[in-house]
């Protein structure tokens, strides 16, 4: 329990300046849900924290057909869970949000924080990957855009330079006939860290064949990862049971799970196969016809199918 100072910027510029001044001994916090737990267990010991909460204008979630969905750095996981735009257009992300902790943590935790914390088990991350999220990263030298899968470098490590801030996440507008789902595999229906999480998003052509498929896996590699092999197997195919089963097998092959207190490695790999199949089947079944919120909530946490 090391002491730290509390710094509160009221603009992005001020936040960047405080971070630059503090260097490695300072840490940015948003919802502080990861931060306070790590600090209490002695993992993080900054001299000061820069709290983003009071930087105005960053808590938005907006949608338009050109830019798609824009999520500000202070939008919380609960904001996402409650957003009609997200539920209707990005059901896999809504599922990731609804499967996330409990409401008290969702009301604090930010989506940007979930990304920057870069846990392989982050529940919004597979869906964000599957929707091709782009990240706006701002530093004292200006801003840059990075695709989300280039943001993750390792467990807890991102491509952000010291002093940089992730200010916005953008998800392109999905094609017409798109469906998606995220399923979290955990022993309980809430509050657990994912043992495995899988998001699938598929877009269908008018003839029902697969126009695009994106599958992302959580908690089975050092970072959340796309299952490119499985995706490739599906494009321009009809998404029948055999093809979906094959994609499940390829996804399972492509990951590199570890064993820990939650699960063994082989079981995790097998769950990747099962959840890939299930999320794909559901995505196909609901393409262009998003499920109700109640259905998303019931499906999002895999305690039993």
């Amino acid at each position: 329990m090391a002491r730290f100072d509390y710094l509160e910027p009221h603009s992005l510029d001020e936040a960047l300046r405080l971070l630059a001044e503090g260097g490695d001994n300072t840490r940015l916090v948003a919802g502080s849900t990861d931060f306070l737990v790590r600090w209490r267990t002695g993992v993080w010991r900054p001299d000061s924290v820069v709290c983003m909460q009071h930087v105005p204008g960053l808590d938005y979630i907006t949608w338009n057909p050109d830019d798609g969905l824009s999520i500000g750095a202070l939008a919380t996981v609960q904001d996402i869970e409650q957003s009609d735009e997200v539920r209707n257009r990005y059901p896999a992300l809504a599922a990731g949000a609804t499967a996330f902790a409990g409401v008290q943590v969702r009301n604090l935790a930010t989506v940007a924080g979930n990304i920057c914390n870069a846990s392989p088990a982050g529940d919004t991350l597979p869906a964000l990957l599957a929707y091709n999220a782009q990240c706006r990263i701002v530093g004292t030298g200006g801003e840059r855009w990075l695709p989300l899968d280039e943001v993750f470098v390792g467990p807890g490590r991102t491509a952000l330079e010291s002093g940089e801030i992730l200010t916005e996440i953008r998800l392109p507008a999905p094609a017409e006939n798109t469906g998606g789902l995220y399923i979290k595999h955990s022993p309980r229906g809430a509050m657990d860290i994912s043992a495995v999480g899988v998001a699938s998003v598929v877009s269908l052509n008018a003839d029902g064949a697969c126009a695009s498929a994106r599958i992302a896996l959580g908690a089975v590699a050092p970072t959340p990862v796309r299952a490119y092999g499985a995706e490739g197997r599906l494009v321009s195919q009809t998404l029948d049971a055999a093809n979906i089963a094959e994609a499940g097998r390829l996804a399972a092959q492509s990951c590199s799970p570890i064993a820990d207190v939650r699960s063994g490695a082989d079981y995790r790999r097998e769950m990747v196969r099962v959840l890939t199949e299930r999320t794909l089947s559901h995505a196909v079944a609901t393409a262009g016809n998003p499920p109700s919120y109640d259905d998303i909530r019931r499906l999002a946490v895999q305690t039993a199918w």
Binding site: T33, V49, C51, Q104
Partner: peptide
């Protein structure tokens, strides 16, 4: 009006 776990909130924020 929103429920939060107060152990995860920095008092000064």
């Amino acid at each position: 009006g929103k429920p939060v776990t107060s152990c995860l909130v920095l008092a000064h924020s």
